[in-house]
């Protein structure tokens, strides 16, 4: 799904593992609302997109965040063009 605002401010959002399964997508481009200045602001906006998004993002304590492929948290700023990734705690090795 691609939505852009009139000024074209958009954000890429990625999901992995069970979050990808719940949201039904691994990558979506969303319009960046003016009110969103950090990851914490973005979460309720994404949760409103579908029941699956709401389920995936229900417990942010069980979720890790990366902005532009560097670990962040709910206070990490987001701006137009950023890539925000949500995923469960990692289980490699």
């Amino acid at each position: 799904m691609t939505i852009t605002t009139e000024n074209g401010a958009s954000l890429s959002v990625r999901y992995f593992a069970w979050m990808r399964e719940h949201t039904g997508t691994d990558l979506e481009t969303i319009a960046l609302p003016d009110s969103v200045i950090n990851v914490g602001d973005l979460v309720p906006h994404l949760s409103a997109m579908s029941d699956g998004h709401a389920l995936a993002l229900k417990n942010m304590k069980a979720v890790r965040v990366a902005v532009n492929r560097t670990y962040g948290d709910l206070d990490t700023p987001v701006t137009a063009g950023d890539e925000v990734a949500f995923f469960p705690p990692v289980t490699g090795g």
């Binding site: 992995f16 593992a17 069970w18 990366a66 670990y71 995923f87 469960p88 705690p89 990692v90 289980t91 490699g92 090795g93």
Partner: peptide, 23 residues
């Protein structure tokens, strides 16, 4: 550090069912 920081996720198959491994 690889176990806690590198973004890999394992899904296990058991009895024909697949489930994500918890950290």
């Amino acid at each position: 550090f690889l176990k806690t920081d590198a973004p890999f996720w394992k899904a296990e198959e058991r009895d024909g069912k697949t489930s994500w491994v918890d950290a």
